[in-house]
């Protein structure tokens, strides 16, 4: 029971991080970046490929590469699409996601690459007579630390203030002097950093990295930001968390029916979109203006 609750919380935290990465980029350019999943994938590949290096160096390299991919994807693709119909941007990100999957397949092969990353996180310990996995505890701790750091960045720093202002009204933010290119680049780089965190947690539990590694979690994080309200970062993170917890709960409660957990989740999304198009945390139907 305790293990199930811990699993639910750690899964929720993981999805919250992924949703936050999507939410950051959506905030500044109204783009649902489907290719966020491919940032998670490249980070996972990097962690596996550099497994023989000391963990800290491997992590640094991964963050650098992932942030660079995020930065370049904005510079070469999304920057040129700024201001076009959001539907076209969504399709473009879908396309970019496919491009990257195929490129990974060319570079790393279609078969999974695997390596044991951070082996000390695997295993379990006894607590009050119960066996608890180390990774679930570490995931929770790590998530809390990252969420706190992000919270500080967004709420207390000048960059965070600009991100929030740009998410609310980019035009006016620019009139006040917010540098659009720099801010959007910063949002992408941050989303790359978050993707690295997500990849690290994922890889510890499932080291079989294939070209589609990040797709699933991205779809679920997307569900999360829709549920939580896409236009606020807090909503996005909370929505991601809720999805993780619901999915975990469905998996426990549905028993043999757990294969249909996604259906229930998507059904929930449909209902929420119909009742509150801006997410359950929103005051109005904020998605309408998108």
């Amino acid at each position: 029971m305790i293990q199930s609750i811990l699993d639910a919380i750690s899964l929720g935290g993981l999805y919250a991080l992924a949703a936050l990465g999507l939410g950051l980029v959506f905030g500044v350019m109204r783009l649902v970046n489907f290719a966020h999943g491919e940032l998670i994938t490249i980070a996972a590949y990097m962690l596996v490929v550099t497994v023989n290096l000391p963990l800290i160096i491997s992590l640094l390299l991964t963050v650098l590469v992932t942030a660079a991919v995020a930065f370049l994807m904005e510079l070469t693709i999304y920057r040129r699409l700024r201001g076009v119909n959001p539907a076209i941007m969504l399709i473009a990100s879908f396309g970019l996601s496919t491009v990257l999957q195929r490129v990974y397949e060319l570079i790393f092969g279609a078969l999974p690459k695997s390596a044991v990353v951070a082996p000390f996180l695997n295993g379990a310990f006894k607590f009050a007579g119960l066996s608890i996995t180390i990774s679930s505890v570490i995931t929770i701790v790590l998530t809390v630390v990252i969420l706190l750091a992000m919270g500080y960045l967004v709420e207390k720093t000048s960059l965070g203030l600009q991100l929030r202002a740009a998410a609310a009204d980019f035009r006016t933010a620019r009139l006040l002097g917010v540098r659009s290119n720099r801010l959007i680049s910063a949002a992408f780089v941050l989303s790359g950093v978050l993707a690295t965190c997500v990849a690290f947690i994922l890889v510890v539990e499932n080291p079989e990295v294939n070209p589609y590694y990040g797709v699933n979690i991205t779809i679920l994080a997307l569900v999360g930001i829709v549920i939580g309200g896409i236009s606020s970062l807090r909503g996005a993170a909370l929505g991601g968390f809720v999805v993780g917890v619901i999915l975990s709960a469905l998996n426990t409660l549905l028993g043999n029916g757990r294969v249909y957990a996604y259906s229930w989740l998507f059904l929930l999304v449909l209902i929420i979109l119909l009742v509150r198009p801006g997410g359950f945390l929103s005051k109005g139907s904020e998605l309408e203006r998108v």
């Binding site: 959001p86 969504l90 829709v226 999304v269 119909l274 998605l287």
Partner: peptide, 8 residues
């Protein structure tokens, strides 16, 4: 509309 329709 828009994005909500895409996701739904």
């Amino acid at each position: 509309n828009g994005l909500a329709a895409g996701i739904a």
